[in-house]
Computed example of a mutant assay.
Amino acid sequence: MTEPEFIPADSDPDARRSDSARNLAVVVYILQGLFFFAGITPLVGVIINYVKMDDVTGTWIEPHFRWQIRTFWIGLLWLVIGTLTAPLIIGWFFLLGIAIWFIYRIVKGALALNDGKAP
């Protein structure tokens, strides 16, 4: 009789989809995406990330939370720089660049989350 092959508990994609931490990461990606329609939503998302970080530490969701937090803070920094320099025309390029970068980060993270991978 041969032993069955070892399969990690979280390798089942359906099991990962029902994970509450994964669902929180989905909510935060949605909140970040809603930034273009309602500007305060990424703040709500990053608060969720910080409040729930202890719950996801050491899990496959932790890189997503870190990715989302980093996206928020870097995006906020460049949003402020772009807004302050907008009267100097160059700020509009900063704002366009950060908008494209922000969308890229949300899409890349959400697709990786859907595939059960780190961003």
Rank of each mutant, 00 (worst) to 15 (best):
L34V: 01
R17Q: 10
I61M: 07
T59Y: 03
L24R: 12
I74H: 13
L77T: 15
I81Q: 00
G45E: 08
P13R: 06
V80Q: 00
R66M: 06
W78G: 00
Y50K: 10
L31H: 05
I48M: 15
A15N: 04
S11A: 11
I47P: 08
V80M: 00
D54R: 11
L34Q: 06
P63S: 09
G75A: 02
L31F: 07
D14F: 03
R22Y: 03
L76M: 12
Y29Q: 03
A9L: 08
V26E: 10
V27D: 14
M53P: 08
M53D: 14
D14V: 14
I61W: 07
G82A: 09
T59Q: 05
T59K: 04
R16T: 13
A25V: 06
L77S: 14
L34Y: 00
D19M: 11
T59H: 02
P42E: 02
P42Y: 09
I48N: 14
W67R: 02
I48E: 13
T59I: 12
A21Q: 10
W73V: 04
R66A: 02
A38I: 00
R70I: 15
V51Y: 14
L24Q: 12
N49C: 12
I40A: 13
T41Y: 12
I48Q: 15
D19E: 13
I47Q: 07
D12S: 09
P63I: 06
W78E: 01
P63D: 03
L24W: 06
P63K: 11
L31G: 01
L43T: 09
V44I: 15
A9V: 13
L79Q: 01
A9H: 06
D12Y: 00
D55C: 08
A9E: 01
F65H: 04
D54E: 14
A9F: 06
I69C: 04
S18G: 12
Q32H: 11
G33L: 00
R66I: 01
I69Q: 10
I30L: 04
F37H: 05
A25H: 05
R66W: 12
N23A: 09
D12G: 09
V28C: 01
Q32V: 00
P13G: 06
D12C: 05
G58Y: 09
D55P: 08
A15T: 13
W73I: 08
V80I: 13
Q32E: 05
I48K: 14
T71R: 05
V26P: 02
W73F: 15
I81T: 01
V44R: 06
F72Y: 11
P63H: 10
R17C: 07
W60N: 02
P13W: 07
P13I: 15
D19V: 14
V56M: 07
L43K: 10
P42N: 08
L24M: 14
S20D: 11
W73T: 00
A25C: 12
I69K: 08
V44C: 04
V26Y: 08
R70H: 14
W67T: 02
N23R: 14
V44L: 10
F36S: 03
G39P: 02
L76Q: 11
N49H: 05
P13Y: 05
Y29E: 07
D14T: 15
I69L: 12
